[in-house]
Write a protein that binds this DNA or RNA. Structure first.
Length: 255
DNA sequence: GAGTCGTGGGG
DNA sequence: TCCCCAAGACT
């Protein structure tokens, strides 16, 4: 849930989710529509589908348990390098190299001396991150938590709190006078008028509908000819939506 | 490797 | 108001 979504916004939906589906087997038994509804407006709803698929995989391949090995975690749907390392470290205390946006920013500043990390993770960053994780497993687990929290709470993107930072002494960025970022500009995401916005609007209506909706219910979402149908069918292909078996003009979240 | 994929809040 | 950014993953 926290992939690309602020942790503070995740907490409430996460608690409800865990109360409803405490184990992988519980989640695996839910329908795609149920999990997409419970996901609500957290964003990137395909994460909800993948989380459910991961639960299915855990039941099938890991006796309903969350696997401990990073390689097994990586093989789960929706689990990439960051999440696999994070689960192995935070849940099991193993020595992994956790590199998320917070860790990247802390290392960019404290070690490399620049205001922010590159737009996407580079090989050099991965090497740097690996080189600073302590060898001892127990110590490394604490390290991973600490550097990530430091980035989230102190070494923040918009407002670095260098006054209260334990690394301020010896921070390369502070020593350089906190120079502004001069690198490739992250391309603006943009949202209004994009496919993502329209997809989001379609899904929101389907989440809010207790049962199914006729195709015309989406007409006012976007004026472009054919766009609604194109995106609606993409959502069907991706497993979010299904047409009613006996009426192809009505749609609902997948049951 | 660049594009795509949601949504909301803080500066 | 607008813009940036948020515990990334996948194609």
């Amino acid at each position: 849930m926290a992939q690309q979504t602020p942790v503070a916004r995740v907490e409430a939906p996460w608690r409800e989710w865990m109360a409803r589906w405490p184990t992988p087997a519980d989640l695996a038994a839910a329908s795609p529509g149920d999990v997409v509804r419970a996901w609500g407006r957290l964003g990137y709803p395909r994460r909800a589908l993948r989380l459910r698929e991961a639960a299915v995989a855990m039941v099938e391949r890991h006796e309903g348990e969350v696997p401990r090995l990073e390689t097994d975690l990586l093989a789960l749907p929706g689990v990439g390098a960051y999440t696999a390392a994070a689960v192995a470290a935070f849940a099991f205390g193993d020595r992994t190299v956790v590199v998320d946006t917070n860790v990247r920013r802390v290392l960019a500043r404290a070690v490399t001396g620049v205001a922010q990390a590159a737009p996407s993770l580079t090989a050099a960053e991965s090497r740097l991150a690996a080189s600073v994780v302590p060898e001892d497993p127990a110590t490394s687990a604490v390290w991973n938590v600490a550097i990530m929290e430091l980035g989230a709470l102190v070494c923040q993107a918009r407002r670095p709190r260098c006054e209260s930072c334990p690394l301020a002494d010896g921070c390369a960025w502070v020593e350089a006078g906190r120079p502004a970022y001069e690198g490739a500009v992250r391309r603006g995401q943009g949202y209004e008028g994009t496919d993502r916005k329209v997809r989001g609007d379609i899904l929101q209506r389907l989440r809010d509908a207790p049962n199914s909706l006729p195709r015309q219910e989406f007409d006012d979402i976007d004026p472009a000819e054919g766009r609604i149908d194109r995106l609606l069918h993409a959502l069907i292909t991706e497993g979010f939506v299904e047409p009613l078996p006996n009426n192809g003009n009505r749609f609902r979240l997948t049951r």
